[in-house]
């Protein structure tokens, strides 16, 4: 059996662009009565795992997942988790056995690229919060009230 690797791809809007989705989340947070958060950055995150290496994942990300005009991307080994440290953030992923249509389309796209090795993809969202002072219970409230439906999704709080 070939070596199985596990990578994380993070795709976000270049900071020069207005992040409407992040702004919408910020608006919802303020509706909840939570103050003090200045900015919310939203990223699409993809877990790419299977018979892949770093350069193949980068190729997949560039060819399928990235709009080079509007987006910037980062790739790291999933276990290194280098992408998760800078700011307090919440990652939201589908629970196992819940249909993930974007991931299925990505896997189909990988095959269409002519890549025949066995690769799996899961999709999620990462929300980074720029705030002077934010604690874990507040992030939990934001996660459960706005970001994740815990019936079908699970969330991970990091950077705090």
């Amino acid at each position: 059996m070939k070596k199985q690797n596990n990578y994380l791809v993070q795709i976000g809007l270049k900071k020069v662009f207005f992040d409407a989705f992040g702004q919408d989340i910020l608006h919802s947070i303020r509706e909840l009565g939570i103050e003090g958060i200045e900015t919310v950055y939203v990223y699409d995150v993809y877990r790419v795992y299977g018979e892949v290496n770093f350069s193949l994942v980068k190729r997949i990300a560039r060819s399928l997942l990235l709009d080079p005009v509007a987006h910037e991307m980062a790739v790291c080994r999933y276990q290194d988790n280098k992408l998760k440290r800078k700011l307090p953030c919440v990652e939201v992923w589908y629970r196992r056995a819940v249909t993930d249509p974007v991931a299925l389309t990505a896997m189909k796209g990988i095959k269409d690229l002519g890549i025949t090795v066995d690769i799996n993809v899961s999709c999620g969202k990462k929300y980074e919060f720029s705030a002077a002072n934010i604690d874990r219970p507040t992030l939990e409230t934001i996660a459960t009230k706005i970001l994740a439906n815990t019936l079908i999704q699970e969330f991970i709080i990091q950077g705090i």
Binding site: A97, V98, T99, P101, T105
Partner: peptide, 10 residues
């Protein structure tokens, strides 16, 4: 969880 369906319009 199983009662929830997620669609794929494509």
């Amino acid at each position: 969880t199983s009662v929830v369906q997620i669609g794929n319009p494509i």
